[in-house]
């Protein structure tokens, strides 16, 4: 009957044990050649990529060439507006030899870029049945999360704020509900703008954070990647350590003049 300790603290997703709880992305970098150094500084073991049509007029280099070989690729289905498109992209990503992990992203609102929970659940169900390790990007909605659990997701990835906004954990309360209620790793994706926010998510009990924009658009992406790596480790350690005393607001007569259990001594 021992409590968990910090030793051997791994995150298991789809049977793979990860020691780093920071996932990084490959989008929005000024030059893809930064990616190896960013990956190294972050300590991350999981990195996202997207699948796109080859631009026939101007075929660019393949981003995979810049990704360290030890990293687990997490292709996303960005660009999918329906469940069917997400499934199609996932199958293509798998055919490209990138393993069976897939981040489902179904977005048909191009203004706010918020994910479609219903379509995401349908795509998750189809792909999980095909053996994919499905990590769906979602609004932190309890019912959608339960649908995703039932659909066979390997984790849920709620957004902290609208994608790319760097606005932090705007949905902290709702993410807290998912952490409490959902028996899958809860990976905060989107919205995290600063290492302190990643740290806060981890302190709350998030299983991991996915950070792309905040690193890629920093003045020094490599240094920022290192800072995020440290913040995620610190937040995780704090969560495992148990929170220390916080001076609580005195609630509802917390200093009762007559004790509630005084009758037991009578």
């Amino acid at each position: 009957m021992t409590h968990d300790t910090h030793d051997n603290d791994t995150l298991v997703i789809g049977g793979t044990a990860l020691t780093s709880r920071l996932f990084i992305g490959t989008g929005k970098y000024g030059t893809d050649s930064l990616i190896p150094d960013v990956a190294g500084a972050s300590g991350s073991q999981v990195i996202t990529v997207a699948l796109r049509r080859v631009d026939l007029a101007n075929p660019r280099s393949n981003v995979l060439a810049h990704i360290p070989s030890h990293m687990r690729l997490l292709p996303n289905t960005s660009g999918a507006r329906t469940a069917e498109e997400a499934v199609r992209i996932a199958r293509l990503a798998q055919a490209a030899g990138c393993g069976n992990w897939i981040k489902i992203e179904v977005i048909s609102d191009s203004r706010f870029l918020l994910p479609d929970g219903y379509a995401t659940a349908r795509a998750t169900e189809t792909l999980a049945k095909e053996g994919f390790v499905v990590l769906p990007y979602m609004n932190p909605d309890l019912y959608v999360a339960r649908d995703l659990v039932n659909a066979g997701a390997a984790a849920v990835m709620p957004l902290g704020a609208p994608i790319g906004t760097n606005r932090g954990l705007r949905t902290a309360e709702m993410i807290g509900v998912l952490i409490e209620e959902i028996d899958l790793p809860v990976i905060v994706d989107a919205g995290i703008g600063k290492p302190s926010q990643a740290c806060e998510a981890m302190e709350m009990g998030a299983a991991a954070c996915l950070v792309n924009t905040a690193i890629a658009t920093a003045g020094n992406p490599v240094a920022m990647a290192r800072a995020f790596g440290e913040a995620v480790r610190a937040g995780r350690a704090a969560y495992l350590s148990g929170a220390g005393p916080v001076a609580a607001a005195t609630a509802d007569g917390a200093n009762a003049s007559s004790p509630l259990t005084g009758f037991l001594g009578e």
């Binding site: 968990d4 995150l11 809860v186």
Partner: peptide, 13 residues
């Protein structure tokens, strides 16, 4: 549905 993980905080989640 409701895979119940007895030990918490869980080391794997």
């Amino acid at each position: 549905a409701g895979n119940f993980t007895p030990a918490a905080p869980s080391a794997t989640a």
